[in-house]
Amino acid sequence: MEQKDFVLAVEGLSVSFDGFKAVNDLSFYVDEGEIRVIIGPNGAGKTTVLDLICGRTKATDGSIKFRNKELTRMKEHQIVHAGVGRKFQNPSIYEDLTVFENLELSFPRGHSVFGALTFRRDKQVIDKVTEVAEMIFLADLLHQRADLLSHGQKQWLEIGMLLIQDPALLMLDEPVAGMSVAERKKTAELLNRITRDRSVLVIEHDMQFVEDIAHRVTVLHQGRLLSEGSLERVKNDPKVVEVYLGH
């Protein structure tokens, strides 16, 4: 294999749930700095692919290399420390904590038991949290309990929690789903800003949104790779038209 500058190399990845192959012999490669969008009909296995990369689901077969580090054998928190961050499909935040506390917990310091006991909320932390809160439009709500936020605000908060981790590979699962038109616009802006100096893997259905941000597109169908390339190419691929865009 030639050693190109892949940030992520997925090869022969498979997972089966009780015999059902949700992901089936999947291979794809993401370049450093690339924004890759994964599309595909519901149940195609998109979310499962992210689950496999971030260690939430263990692969039955195949390999996932992040900057030449094999992820399939690592624990979830180790994968995070390696530099992979993930936003879940449903906003997944700590509802009993405030916005500030949610962001603070994601600050990449004091992740051991001892570290957490001796963690100090110093200027560096406060500045970083405030900076990110401003980016995600929540600067005025720092002391609001997170369960009182709107759906869109929760999505932003989770994006903020990722930003504070400053991952090299950012994975977003349907970041604009369930948002109002206004929120969608703001989110697109936000994503444009935060995806600049990192590699990104996004799952999204909104075609306008895909067109706006994607460098390349990977199409999944029934756990397999159906097509890959520029959005233009993928759109005109007859296989894709048949299963996905045609209806």
Partner: peptide, 28 residues
């Protein structure tokens, strides 16, 4: 009152998510 206290609340709410904030939940 330490960050560990807030982390416990987070673990109680969403143990799964805490792992993806980079913590080894079992050690806490």
């Amino acid at each position: 009152k330490s960050k560990l206290g807030r982390l416990l609340v987070a673990i109680r709410d969403r143990e799964d998510r805490v792992r993806f904030s980079g913590y080894d939940v079992s050690s806490f």
